[in-house]
Each structure stands twice: as structure tokens, then as C-alpha cells.
Amino acid sequence: MTTAFDILLRLLLWLLLAPLVPGIINKVKAWVAGRRGPPVLQLYYDLAKLWRKGVVLSTAVSPGHIAGTAVAWMALVLAALLLPAGPAGAPLAFRGDALLFVYLLALARFCTALAALDTGSAFEGMGAAREVSYAVLGEAAIITALIALSLQTGSVSLTTMLAPAAGAGAALLAAGLFAVLLAENCRVPFDDPNTHLELTMIHEVMVLDHSGPPLAAVLHGASLKLLMFSVLLVQAVLPAGELSPLTAACALAGSVLAVAVGVGLVESLLARLAFRRVPLLLTTAFLLCLFAALVSWRGGHL
């Protein structure tokens, strides 16, 4: 009973903290641009508003449209259950959960893309096509990063894999995972979460026809995914398992904040890449992870 309560509590923490990250990123962007910017809690207000609003559905959609959104959201929430959060560890840990984590993200992608195609819109088809195509390279990079961590620790469970520092390849791994974070969460330079020009977008264009509570689920899921990738990146590099719980928690929170600030700075300072350049950048991310894996294989020294 206590374990169930424990799991529920941690899940609640994940769900509640997630919308904070986009708020921080937007604040950083506003600061760099010299604006005051929206409040950090803006996404919470948006979610609350959307949850109360009515839904406008396309006449073309099937009942699967809303179901797909819901399943994608649930897949992301359940993936959060597998990810350890510093000293608290993961609510659920078993051998091979790292792969389940990756495939739950894939399930979310599958459902989001199908929900987009459901509307029959050419724009959303374009977005879905881009999403699933670039995810191929992103997935190669993530699996390679898992290989690097597994070579380091000899384990296939996220809790053990993420406990020690990533060794000599840490810088490579961090760079690779950061690029994957930007790509998977559709940030600049891969995609621009702020534009509303349908032809140039990936993720935003897939959710053009969502509204009301389903759109709230999409937005919350996206922020949760961003938080998960930040936590994953931070813990891959940070020796969270070797610090005292309090220091580890502080270090984790501080580093996630740093990642959010980093994303904000990247968005302020870089322009979006041309689409034909995206695969090159993702291949670079894959190679960074691959070289991190090879460094781990050589026993952590160059």
C-alpha cells in the first residue's frame, strides 16, 4: 500500500513540475531579448484554461483522434515512472526498463502522428512525416547513448545506468544527448516552438487541429517529455549515485535548471536550421554518442 502511495506521489511530482520547464525557457528567451516575457507559471494558466474550454473537432476525424492523444500522453506519463529522479530513485526499476523507456516514447510518437493524419490535412501529414523521419536518427542516438551507459555500468536498468558519472566520454555524451533533447522536443535549431507558419514546423503543425482538453494533454505531454530528457541528460553526466541525497537533489535541480537556461540561450542565439541540414546535425549527435560508447568500451580513458 505504501509503495502504491509512494509511486502515486512521485508521479504527481513529475506531473506538477513538468510545465515549469517551458516557463523557464521562455523567461530566459525574454531576458535575452530584453523583454519582460510571460510569467514562469504561464503554461499552468494555459493548461487550466484549455481544460475548461470546449473542443472543436474536424469533421474528418475518427474517434481515435482523441484516444490517440490520450494514449500518447499516458505513454509519456508512464515513461516518467521508469526514470530515476536523483536520490529518490525510480518508482519502478527492472532489468531492461531503459529500452521500455525508449519504446514508450515511440508509442507516444506513433499515436501523435496517427492523430495528426486523422485530420486529413496536408500540413499535418507533412509534420507527421517529418516527426517520424527525424525520430529514426534520434532513436539511433538514444540507443547509442544507452549503449554507452550500459558499457559503463554493465546494466540495462536506468537506475543503475544513471547512478555513476559517465566517465571520460561524459562531454561527448552530454553534447550528443543535448542535441537529441533539442530534436525530440522540437526546439531550435530543429524546429521552432513559437512560429505558426505551417510549412516550416514539425511538432506544432501536427497539433494544429487539437483544441480544448486534448490540446492541454498534448502541451502537458510535451513539457513532461522536455523535463524527462533534461533529467536523463543531467543524470547521465552527474554522479548522482555517489553524492549524499541532499546534495544530489540540489545538484539535480540546479542542473535541470541549467539545461533549461541552456535551451533558452540556444533558442535566443541560433536560428532554425534548413530542413536539409537537420539529418546532418542528428547524425553528428549519433556520432557523439557513438564515440562516448567507444570511450566507455576502452575503459573510460582515451
Binding site: V55, V56, L57, S58, T59, A60, G212, P213
Partner: peptide, 12 residues
């Protein structure tokens, strides 16, 4: 969604 009310319209 049903509770909040669903309106049907063409795809954007």
C-alpha cells in the same frame, strides 16, 4: 471533451 461541448468544423 463531451462535457465541455464538441463543435464540428472542417479541417484547418
Amino acid at each position: 471533451a463531451r462535457h465541455n461541448g464538441i463543435r464540428r468544423t472542417g479541417t484547418w
